[in-house]
Every structure is written in C-alpha cells, then in structure tokens.
Design a protein around this nucleic acid. Structure first.
Lengths: 235, 235
DNA sequence: GCTCTTTCATGACATTTATCATGTTTTTCA
DNA sequence: TGAAAAACATGATAAATGTCATGAAAGAGC
C-alpha cells in the first residue's frame, strides 16, 4: 500500500484521508469533503488548466485524475495520472512557471487545496518536507525519462502492452478482475502515443491472443507474462 | 547569459567558475581543475553510469555532457544535455534511486563533486537552496512533458526541425555561425527519436531547402523562421 | 602518410502506422 | 425513453518510417 503524502498543514483532512475517504460512495464523500472545507470535483471537471498561473497545490484524498497537455491541433496528450494520496500542481508552483499540464477528473475526486504561502512556509520550516517533495519530483523525472525512451524506441504494439501493465499497476483491479480505471480507446491511444484506430485494432489482437479480455471499457489482464514479453518489459 | 547554479560549499571554485573557466584552453583548464581539487573528464569519458548508486552531485564548471539512457538492444537514448553552470546527478541523489541516466562527456569537462552529506546539510540549513534545487527539477519536468508530447504526436520531420532549434538555443553558435556542439548523425537521430538514416536524409533535405547548412559535423542554422514553421513550433 | 574504423550518404524495399470511410454499438441527456 | 452524440470497430488505402545494402568520405591510431 502506497504511503499517502501527508501535508502537515492539511491535517484537518489529510492525516486521516485514506482511512476516512477510501471506501465512501460518491454522495457521502461529497458531503464529508464539504464539511472539511475541501474541494470536490465531479467526473469531467478540470481542477486546473495548462497555461494558467499556479497559486497553490492540491493533495488528492480520493479520486482519479488525468494530467494532460495540448499537442498539435488541440490533440490531447496524457502524461500521467494522479490518485488517492498524490499531490498535483506542485511542479508549476515550484518552478514559478504556469501549469504545464491540465488536471481533469476521471472519477469523482476530493482534494485539499494548499495555497502557495502555506506551502513555501512549510518548505522553509520543515526541511524534511522539502526533501519529501523533491523526492517525489525526482521520481517523476525518472519515469519521464523512461517514457521518452519508450516513445522514441519502441513500436506501438510494445508500448500498448506496457501501458496496459502500467495501468494495472497504477490502478489495481476491481473485484471482477478488470483494471480499476475507465478510459476511452482514444485516451489509451494518447497514453501510448498512437492513433485511436491503431489502438483499437491492437487491443482486439491482444484479446484474440488471449492476453487480455475486453467488455466494453473494462479491460482484464489475462496473461501478464505474455504482455511483458510483447511489451519487451524487463525491469 | 544563464545564471550559474552556485553551490555555497563549493565556493573554492564555483563562485568564480564561469569567469575563471570560461575561455581557457583544455590544458590550462585541466591544470586549474586539478589545483582546485575538482575533477576533469576528457571527451568520451563517462562521469556516472545508469543503474549505479548515487553518492553525490556534480556541478559543471565548463564542458558539454550528454545525459542518456539505454533503450532496447542497448540503443542509446539521449534525454538532455548539461553544460557550464548546470548541476547533474541530483535526481538520483534526491529520489534515493540509482542513476536513471548516464552522463557522458562530449567535450572536455571540469566538474566539482559534492558528496551526499554536504548536499543534505545544505538543504536542511538553507531553505532557499532547497527551493532553488526544486525549481530546477520542476523546470526539467516541464520540458520532459513537452518532449513526451512531441514524440507522441509530431512526425519525425517536425521533431528534427525543433531539435535543431533547441540545439542552437542550448549551445549557441561558434564564431563561424555553426551550432556550438559536435554530434554524430546517430546522436541527433537519438535526440529526435528516429533511425540514423532517416535523420541523415532529412538533414540533407533541410539543406536543399536552404534552412540549414552542413559542413561535416558542423550545422549552420540559416532560416530560423523556416525551421519554426517546419517544426510546428509555437511558443 | 597510410591503414583501419567509424561515420556519412543514398537507393531499394519492407513494414509500420496513420488516415479515410463506413457502419455498429454505447452513452448521454433532454 | 428515445434521439443525438460519442465511442467503438473494421476494411481499404496511403503515407511515413525503418531496415538492409552498398559505397564514399572522414577521422583515429600507428
């Protein structure tokens, strides 16, 4: 279980975030979120937009968020996801640049907003906190380097196989065994860096090869080893 | 002129780094570097290797370094460059992970090594320093997101045009007007994320279209606007 | 300077991947 | 619930890009 990123100033909610929020149905979550002075976003809403100025950061109590960027002709590029226990918006805050990504909500999400001043005070007063933030950022950088290498060197088929494994790793599985996130084929294509049609075709192939199962938007990983092999994944 | 990243503990050399080191010929640089207890690396040497554990960071007095990663079948992927005033190796140090990249020297390079303990003390004692480090890291992240989007969405031709502009921006020009860095076509191909042959072919086309000039490994940018247009660069 | 190795260059070709077209299914929401 | 929109699916085709082969040029080391 991933350790949540606990922001001291935010203990009104964060210190108990995972235990309190984890398994609530949406309506209750929304009520509790409001009662604690936090923010609630519904599916489809955007927490912040690429290009806007950052005034604070958000810690995610519960929810699923896609971090994405506009490419050519407005085509969406998904860079990564955020979920329970993650912090988003810190990159822009700390670099002093505008948001380089938008944060859009895939599933109802409860977040705590921490304004810039509070954050800067925290960093100044608590070096451990600063180190923790840096650690997080630097781990992201490592993943980004890996993503760049994959995009530059791997063919689409391999990238898709790897993306499926990463999705399972990131979001886990529902009770029925499907990957616990709902994405359109277009979004998966964006993650992989390929056209939607190519993505659909390859998913069908993977299904025919019995490496995955498909039921609507649900994806079932049936053959991890097969996907590892197909995706040339070696860590 | 970019402000150098000055590490307080390293003032024996860093505080005067750019002014002292900038225009020295290699031999003198090597002597001065040694006399100050810093490290000197010759072209082709590698400062640290991907996968190894990090024990400190390096600040670059003078030199040119490629930060790269091994992809499939050992194919090199260049992620970024470092030069005078940059700091390298901090990502691994701060994330607690092994180096995700190797750092290889393109031109003789003089660096100052700062061990982990010293760095951690600095961060604890000087919050401004911590913020400065974070700022740097976060700016890198912004660039990485942009790189991912380009690789996923732009065709090779556009990426090459953009890479040429970035190289000029990063390294500036020599007196004769050529971009002040020497790379093989294979390395440029790695940056762009394409096969060496495709890279060579497109460079020839760009030359025929009079957007660039080529003399051996020297590259001259002759038509910035043309490259911006070809590369679909819009910032 | 001369050999050996690497890099550069170009053509021919194969493969991958994107695009366009079309029809079906699913989802949305009034 | 029923119409409209969005998403999914698949075929046909075109375009982009990689691979292989070959030779020339440039650079490294003796």
């Amino acid at each position: 279980m991933k350790k949540p990123f606990v922001i001291p100033e935010c203990q009104k909610c964060m210190s108990r975030s995972l235990s309190v929020f984890s398994d609530l149905p949406d309506e209750e979550l929304q009520q509790i979120t409001a009662s604690k002075g936090c923010n609630y976003y519904k599916k489809g809403q955007t927490i912040f937009f690429e290009g806007n100025n950052a005034h604070g950061i958000y810690c995610v109590h519960k929810g699923k968020i896609k971090m994405h960027k506009l490419g050519l002709d407005g085509k969406e590029q998904i860079i990564r996801f955020a979920k329970d226990g993650d912090v988003i918006g810190y990159r822009a805050m700390l670099s002093g640049e505008p948001y380089s990504l938008s944060a859009s909500v895939l599933e109802d999400t409860s977040v705590c907003y921490l304004p810039k001043d509070t954050l800067l005070n925290l960093i100044q007063e608590d070096p451990k906190f600063a180190l923790r933030l840096m650690e997080m950022t630097c781990k992201e950088m490592g993943k980004a380097s890996k993503a760049i290498t994959n995009l530059a060197q791997k063919p689409v088929r391999e990238r898709l196989a790897e993306v499926l494994l990463i999705l399972k790793e990131t979001f886990g599985e529902r009770e029925d065994g499907s990957i616990d996130v709902t994405l359109t084929r277009e979004e998966i294509g964006s993650l992989v860096g390929t056209a939607t049609e190519s993505c659909i075709r390859l998913l069908s192939e993977f299904k025919k090869d019995e490496m995955i199962g498909l039921e609507g938007k649900k994806i079932f990983i049936k053959d991890v080893q097969g996907l590892i092999k197909t995706g040339n994944v070696y860590e």
